[in-house]
């Protein structure tokens, strides 16, 4: 039988032994990272931790809304660095939820490829607000068994010959932007009243031949595969791989009118506790080795190793219009509801 005293001793001892690493860790440096899943893979996180004798506390973002409300509530106090879609930077700037980044403190800043080094979304009036890290696009996905060569225009999504064989996604900003691109408007995120009227007209016209607006990433893939769809607006490159896995001879193309793309970057929180450490993390992320691994492992475009991008077929960053926050998102949502109710 275990005596009470023995039990207490053992419990206490085990408890201490188990908590020892935390006690020890409390003395090392700590970096709090708020990010989308995939941007803190062990391939670059572990070496960073070892090289800087630091413990990273990673928190995954579940949605842009969540992150913004969380950042607003704590003035960024919950994290030191965070990954954010560059489209949303203005929202954080308006609420002082960022710190400008000093590129001279980074050894790898010059490694950024030209399209990302002087990006208009991340460098404003000479102030570096975000460090581009990963990107992807919204290409046109098509069935190669039907199209002998890649369609060169978004017009296929309006082609009456493809009645009930084309799809769009159920998302106001995507649909309105791609319609604006198809109409040849330079800046699909800043439209005037006439342009909106025209966008609305062609989107209502398109409803005649659309199979459906698909609801999400996997939904688009399963609908495409099950219903003989020939072409769709894509939520991202990985849809092609998943379609191929389901036996569809799918491929992607960036039409001549260009396509939209997303660009995520690292930002510095105004409540950062250890700025030197944050810069070290940025340098680790901007190294070409990190970019290469990310592209090879996850299929996202990187911003430093263009050869790795090209090897993965991601050679079209210059044909993309990066997503921006339209100044009138509420109007766009209303327009989208009008289009769907029409």
């Amino acid at each position: 039988m275990i005596k009470r005293r023995t039990f207490l001793k053992t419990t206490l001892g085990t408890g201490l032994a188990l908590s020892a690493p935390w006690v020890a860790r409390a003395q090392t440096r700590e970096l709090r990272i708020q990010t989308w899943e995939g941007y803190t893979e062990p391939e670059w996180l572990k070496p960073f931790e070892e090289a800087n004798d630091v413990v990273c506390r990673v928190n995954f973002t579940t949605s842009d809304d969540d992150l913004f409300t969380k950042a607003l509530a704590s003035k960024g106090g919950d994290f030191d660095v965070f990954a954010l879609n560059t489209a949303l930077i203005p929202r954080y700037v308006a609420n002082s939820l960022y710190l400008p980044i000093d590129p001279s403190r980074l050894t790898n800043f010059e490694k950024l490829a030209p399209a990302f080094h002087d990006n208009a979304l991340t460098v404003v009036d000479g102030e570096v607000r975000s460090l581009p890290f990963a990107w992807g696009s919204n290409p046109l996905i098509y069935d190669q068994d039907y199209f002998t060569e890649a369609p060169d225009s978004w017009g296929v999504l309006w082609d009456p010959a493809l009645d009930k064989q084309v799809m769009m996604v159920d998302d106001s900003s995507s649909v309105i932007s791609v319609a604006a691109l198809y109409l040849g408007y330079e800046d699909p995120f800043n439209l005037n009243a006439d342009q909106y009227a025209e966008v609305k007209r062609i989107l209502i016209e398109q409803k005649q031949i659309l199979l459906t607006y698909y609801a999400g990433f996997a939904d688009g893939v399963s609908l495409f595969a099950q219903n003989g769809v020939k072409a769709m607006y894509s939520m991202g490159e990985p849809q092609v791989k998943e379609l191929q896995a389901q036996g569809v001879n799918a491929a992607l193309t960036i039409p001549k009118e260009k396509a939209t793309g997303w660009l995520d970057g690292w930002m510095l929180s105004p409540s950062c506790r250890d700025v030197d450490l944050a810069y070290a993390w940025f340098d680790a992320c901007l190294s070409q080795a990190t970019g290469k691994i990310m592209t090879e492992k996850l299929g996202y475009g990187n911003t430093t190793d263009l050869d790795a991008n090209a090897a993965a077929g991601l050679d079209y960053a210059d044909k993309l219009v990066w997503f921006q926050l339209a100044p009138d998102t509420e109007y766009r949502t209303q327009l989208w509801n009008e289009i769907k109710a029409a």
Partner: peptide, 19 residues
Amino acid sequence: GMMGHTFGRVVWSQFGVTF
């Protein structure tokens, strides 16, 4: 499909990017 626009969807559309 094109008939799938119901009120729940209208509510949903006010969240996310629309904020």
